[in-house]
């Protein structure tokens, strides 16, 4: 299964990932993305398009979708 990963050093909480894929990414009280496993979240094939949208939305290039 693919994984959505955030690089917590690059991430500055701009929040565009959550705007691009609201069903997939929610933000904490400081505006940083909440992923299931801290910095990672397994992505089902149904969610892949949303995950790619979130990745593309990040101006910091902090999000990545692991290769299949």
């Amino acid at each position: 299964m693919r994984e959505l990963r955030v690089d917590p050093i690059q991430c500055q909480g701009r929040g565009l990932c959550a705007a691009a894929a609201p069903a997939l990414v929610s933000l904490d009280e400081w505006g940083y993305p909440l992923l299931a496993d801290g910095t990672r979240e397994p992505i089902t094939s149904a969610d892949e398009r949303a995950a790619k949208r979130a990745v593309r939305a990040c101006p910091r290039l902090a999000l990545a979708l692991s290769p299949r």
Binding site: P8, W30, G31, Y32
Partner: peptide, 9 residues
Amino acid sequence: QQCGPCRFG
């Protein structure tokens, strides 16, 4: 002071 959740949390 690099990662937001740690910095603020």
